[in-house]
Computed example of a mutant assay.
Amino acid sequence: MVKTMEWQGQSLLLLDQTKLPSEIITILCKDYRRVGEAIKRLEVRGAPAIGAAAAFGMVLGWQELVSRYADFSQETLLIEFKKIKNFLLSTRPTAVNLGWAVEKIYKHAVAMINAQQSLKAIETSLGNLACKIYQEDIEVNRRIGIYGAALLPQQARILTHCNAGALATCGWGTALGVVRQAFLDGRLEMVYADETRPLLQGARLTAWELIEDNIPVTLITDNMAAWVMQTQHIDSVIVGADRIAANGDTANKIGTYGVALAAKY
């Protein structure tokens, strides 16, 4: 399985997704500013991955504050920590996972300061919380995969759009988590991946990621989707979702709507 990031205690290693598939390059983030830059540049992308990266960015920010302002009052540290939170929020204002993750880390720091914990104890606890966010995302994705794969027929032929795989998450993937589980269960015949214009996440990321894991995949242009559904007997279309409303409405990458209409027909 492709690894999007690795926490190293004092730094965060990110896979640069803008270079895929031609180059596999990692970015060493030694401070929260570089994490924010990676989010802005789409070097790390996908809601869950962005959230986890931002959480680790908050930990790096706290480490920097403690080293620079150790003699300051804890109230002053919190004021400065809030500035770091707001900076990371500004890198992708519409990313719900990012906002959730940095707020979770910030509130935990506030609670520990109110409980009069030491700065070192707070640093350790914030690191553990960020790792928990990371690990829980992988576990959630695996459960999505198990539930989703159970809905598929034997020898399923699946169409995807955009990238909602390990690259977009902390690991395993949401939409592609279903595909991975189906492959492990022996229920998958072929994945047809839309190229996904204009940034080609399907061509650059989904197809590459599946090939890396030896999962059968055929890359198609976006305007082939309906024809492929008809001629290749597609069983299911599995895509990610940027938003899911309480009434079941979803919003996702441009191009998903046309695929949904063709699938319904």
Rank of each mutant, 00 (worst) to 15 (best):
T94D: 04
N86F: 04
K104L: 15
A54L: 12
V44Q: 12
E75L: 08
R45I: 11
T76A: 13
K85P: 01
Q74W: 02
E75Q: 09
N97R: 06
K85I: 00
S90R: 00
E103Q: 15
I79D: 07
E103L: 15
K82M: 09
G57P: 07
K82Q: 13
K82W: 02
G61H: 01
A52L: 13
L42K: 06
A53L: 07
E43S: 15
E103H: 15
Q63E: 06
A54H: 13
R68M: 10
K83C: 00
P93Y: 05
V44F: 08
W62C: 09
A101F: 14
A47I: 03
Q74P: 01
R68Y: 03
N97E: 04
R41G: 12
A52C: 14
T94V: 03
F87E: 05
M58I: 05
L89Y: 00
W100R: 12
L98R: 05
F87A: 02
F87R: 02
F72W: 09
P48T: 13
G57E: 05
F81K: 01
R68F: 06
F81C: 01
N97G: 10
I50C: 10
L78H: 03
D71V: 09
M58G: 06
W100V: 10
G57L: 09
K40L: 12
K85E: 04
T91R: 05
E103T: 14
L88I: 03
D71I: 07
K83Y: 01
R68Q: 13
F56G: 12
V66R: 04
A95V: 06
P93C: 05
N86L: 13
Q63R: 14
P48E: 13
V44H: 12
P93L: 04
Q74H: 10
G51C: 11
Q63W: 06
F56Q: 13
L89T: 00
K104V: 15
E103F: 14
L89F: 01
R92Q: 09
K40V: 08
G46N: 12
E64V: 01
R45W: 07
T94M: 03
L42T: 06
V66Q: 03
L65S: 04
K83I: 02
N86A: 14
Y69A: 09
V102A: 09
L77Y: 06
R68T: 13
A53I: 06
F56W: 14
A55I: 07
P48G: 13
S73Y: 09
L65A: 05
N86R: 07
L88V: 02
A49R: 15
L89I: 01
A52E: 10
A53E: 04
W62Q: 06
R45A: 14
F87Q: 04
E80S: 13
E64Y: 02
R45L: 11
Q74C: 05
E43F: 06
G61C: 01
R92G: 09
A54E: 12
V96H: 07
V66L: 05
